[in-house]
Computed example of a mutant assay.
Amino acid sequence: MKSYFTKESKILAHNEKETLYSKLLQSAQEQHGKLQARIEKVDELLEEAESCLVALESGMCFQTGELYSDSSFFLQSWCLKGQFMTLCLELCEMETEDQQMLLQMDELKETEKICQEVLEKYDFTEWEITEWSEQQAIFHFLYDSVELTVVFGPPVDGDDFGGDPSRSIVSLNFESFLDEEQAPPSSCLVQRLIFQFIGSQGRWHEKCPTLYYLPQVLHDISLVVNRCKILGEEVEFLERWGGKFNLLQTDIKDTEVKLLFSSSVAFAKFELTLSLSPSYPSAALPFSVQTLIGNIGEKEISAVLSSVPVGHHYLRRTVSLIHQNLLQDPR
Rank of each mutant, 00 (worst) to 15 (best):
M1L: 05
S3P: 04
Y4D: 10
K7M: 05
S9P: 03
I11Y: 09
H14S: 10
T19F: 10
T19S: 11
S22T: 14
L24I: 11
Q26M: 07
Q26K: 09
S27C: 10
Q29K: 07
Q31G: 08
G33K: 13
Q36S: 05
I39V: 15
I39H: 11
I39N: 06
E40T: 08
E40I: 06
E44F: 05
C61P: 00
Q63S: 11
Q63N: 10
S71Y: 11
F73E: 14
F73V: 14
F74S: 01
S77M: 13
W78L: 15
F84H: 13
T86V: 04
E95I: 08
E97D: 12
M101V: 05
E107W: 07
E110K: 04
T111G: 03
E112I: 02
K113L: 12
Q116H: 05
K121L: 14
E131V: 05
Q135I: 10
Q135H: 11
Q135W: 05
Q136M: 10
V146A: 01
E147C: 08
G153C: 01
P155K: 02
D157V: 08
D160R: 07
G163Y: 07
S166Q: 15
V170Q: 15
L172R: 00
E181T: 03
V190W: 00
L193N: 10
I194Q: 04
F195S: 12
I198M: 07
W204C: 02
E206G: 00
P209T: 06
L211P: 10
Y213N: 11
L218T: 03
L223W: 09
L223Y: 05
N226Q: 13
N226D: 08
K229T: 14
L231N: 00
E234I: 07
V235C: 04
V235G: 04
R240A: 14
G243C: 07
D251P: 01
I252K: 03
K253F: 15
L259P: 11
F261P: 02
S264V: 12
V265A: 14
F270H: 01
L272T: 03
L274N: 10
S275A: 13
S282G: 09
A283H: 14
L285G: 02
F287Q: 00
S288F: 00
I293F: 10
N295G: 15
I301H: 02
A303L: 08
G311D: 11
Y314Q: 15
R317W: 06
I322P: 13
R331E: 15
